[in-house]
Simulated assay, not measured.
Amino acid sequence: MPASDAAATRPGIEPEGPILYAEDGWSWAWFLAAPVFCAAAAAFELITGAPVHWMMLTVCAVASALCHGVMIAATRVHGRVRLTPEVYIQGTEELGLDRIDAVLPLPAAGAPEASWETARTLGELREVPRRRGAVGLRLDSGAEVRAWARDRAALHAALSGAVAAAEGGAGRGGSDPA
């Protein structure tokens, strides 16, 4: 793979062109949560006249911040969603919109489980993460896969529109009525 192609597929690199739908993992602001709470504990100890445990509060703040940093970095890679007019990106997996035959309908409440609801999940994760909803896609190979996002209705609408636009609004690119 040429160097220019490698840079384009690295996680975290924004795809070129307009972004039709985007989600990220955790915010980097959570990195400061533990140090802020440890500073509050130190302030509480100072105000109440108790002995301040500087060493333990510092160790806890640094260790917790480092652990949060690892988790935040992972969620920003594996929980990342981008949709452009040409490609759908789920984590580090890229799927060209020309490979999507249909965006399958969302299941109705109380309806039996659709076949795509147990299909392979796009990205590196084995299952759809908690508090995320899946959207079924039928690929040109006939396989079904699951895309996922926090707002699955918005992702479904964006994918339907992008696939229809990629196919010129006719034929196989629209939502499957079945």
Rank of each mutant, 00 (worst) to 15 (best):
D5V: 10
P112E: 14
E93L: 04
R10T: 11
I100F: 01
A119Q: 06
V36T: 15
L104D: 08
A40Y: 02
A102P: 01
A7R: 13
L139M: 11
A33M: 14
T58I: 10
L139S: 06
G25K: 03
E144M: 13
G142P: 09
L20E: 11
W116C: 01
I13D: 08
S141K: 06
A162F: 02
P105Q: 04
V128P: 06
A154S: 13
A6C: 04
D140I: 10
A134D: 05
G168R: 05
T75S: 15
G123A: 09
A42S: 09
E117G: 01
R146C: 02
S160Q: 12
G25V: 09
T121M: 03
L122Q: 10
G123V: 05
A119T: 13
V103K: 00
L46S: 09
A41K: 01
A108S: 11
F31W: 15
G136H: 01
H78V: 06
P2V: 00
V135M: 02
L139H: 02
V52K: 00
A61S: 14
A7D: 13
A147Q: 08
M56S: 14
M56G: 07
A162N: 07
A153W: 06
P112Q: 11
D98S: 15
S160C: 12
D151E: 12
Y88G: 07
M1V: 11
G136Y: 01
L20P: 05
A119N: 07
A39F: 07
L66P: 03
V62K: 00
T58F: 12
G168M: 04
T84M: 04
T9D: 12
L83A: 07
D24V: 11
L137K: 06
A164M: 09
G161Q: 12
S4Y: 09
D151C: 01
E124G: 15
L32G: 15
G25F: 04
V70D: 03
A164S: 15
L155C: 07
P112L: 02
W54N: 02
H78A: 12
E45G: 03
L95C: 08
S64Q: 03
A102K: 13
P85N: 05
P18Q: 11
A109L: 13
G49P: 09
G169R: 02
P18R: 13
G12M: 07
P107C: 03
G173Y: 03
G96L: 11
P129F: 03
G168E: 08
I72F: 04
A7V: 10
G12Q: 08
E144S: 08
G136V: 00
P11Q: 05
A162I: 05
R82V: 12
S4C: 00
D98T: 15
S64Y: 00
W116H: 08
